[in-house]
Amino acid sequence: MYKYEITKYNPNLRDEKRMYLKKDWTSISDIGKSFENELLTTESYKKSEDSYIKAIIMSMEYLHIPFLSVNNILRSFSCERFVEMREDCELYSQDIIEMYNQVKDGDKLYIGQVDSFCRLLLREDIGSDIFYPRRMKIFIGYDYLMGVHTSKSMDALIPFIEQLNLFVEKY
């Protein structure tokens, strides 16, 4: 098993206990706040989120994985409350809202659906196991942390992921 952490956080800015030393945003709710004298805008947030999604899709393509299965789905809100809260937000397309309302345990997400589902995970609107049996498991947690476990080395893919302004640490 190969284990990678793929994040926006530069590992050189961590102390010996792996605590991140730079004040940085960690959630969609941080849009509009300043970090290190830089305002987190909707555009800069989305650019970072896009990088995570691209890294996931690149990993699936590299490993020849046609879909990801989802299980143990936990929603942060009722479907009705979610729609009410998100329908006027520019970051929530109709596809994302429909994914929130319709996805269920056991569903298979093909590449075209991975985008909407993983955005919900990154935004902490939903929690779930996301995997392809015996070949790939993705862990998306709080604070924009993402882990990827694979059955095959992705070392050749690391430079391409790093071009997305993400950092890859192997474990």
Rank of each mutant, 00 (worst) to 15 (best):
E38W: 00
V70R: 02
G127P: 00
L121N: 02
S116N: 09
I31L: 03
E169W: 01
E5P: 00
S44V: 05
S69H: 09
N10W: 02
D24S: 14
Y110G: 08
K54V: 02
C118A: 12
E5L: 06
D105S: 15
E5I: 08
K3M: 07
R119P: 00
H149F: 11
G141K: 03
V148W: 06
G106R: 12
Y144E: 09
F35E: 05
K152H: 10
R18H: 12
I96D: 02
R18Q: 14
E90R: 09
Y110I: 07
S151N: 15
I57R: 04
Y110H: 11
S153H: 08
Q163G: 00
S78P: 05
R75Q: 14
S48G: 06
K3D: 11
F131N: 06
E16P: 01
E36T: 04
D155G: 09
R134N: 13
Y142A: 10
D88W: 04
L91M: 07
F131M: 10
I65K: 08
A55C: 02
L68T: 07
K23Q: 09
E169C: 12
C118S: 10
F139K: 13
E84Q: 14
K108Q: 10
E80S: 15
D88K: 14
E124A: 13
Y92K: 03
D125P: 05
R75H: 13
K3L: 11
G141S: 14
M60V: 03
M1N: 13
K54A: 05
K137H: 09
N101C: 15
S59A: 13
E61Y: 05
G147P: 03
F139W: 15
S153L: 06
K22R: 12
K33R: 12
D155Q: 14
I111F: 03
E87F: 05
N71S: 15
M1K: 13
W25I: 05
F160P: 00
G141W: 07
L157R: 07
Y45D: 01
L63G: 09
K170V: 13
T41Y: 03
R81W: 06
S59W: 03
G127S: 11
F35P: 01
K54F: 00
I126D: 01
D107T: 10
D50C: 02
P159W: 06
V103N: 04
A156Q: 09
C79N: 11
I161V: 13
K47N: 02
R14Y: 04
I6W: 01
L109R: 04
E49N: 05
C79M: 05
Y171H: 15
D30I: 04
E87H: 12
S44N: 10
P11W: 03
K54G: 00
M136F: 12
F160T: 07
K170E: 08
P133Y: 14
F35A: 03
M1L: 13
K137P: 00
G112D: 09
F77T: 04
L145P: 00
N37Q: 11
Y171E: 14
L121F: 05
E169K: 13
L39V: 06
E80I: 15
L120T: 10
N165G: 01
I138Y: 06
L166P: 01
K22C: 03
N101L: 11
R18L: 14
L74A: 10
K17A: 09
E124S: 15
P11T: 11
C79F: 02
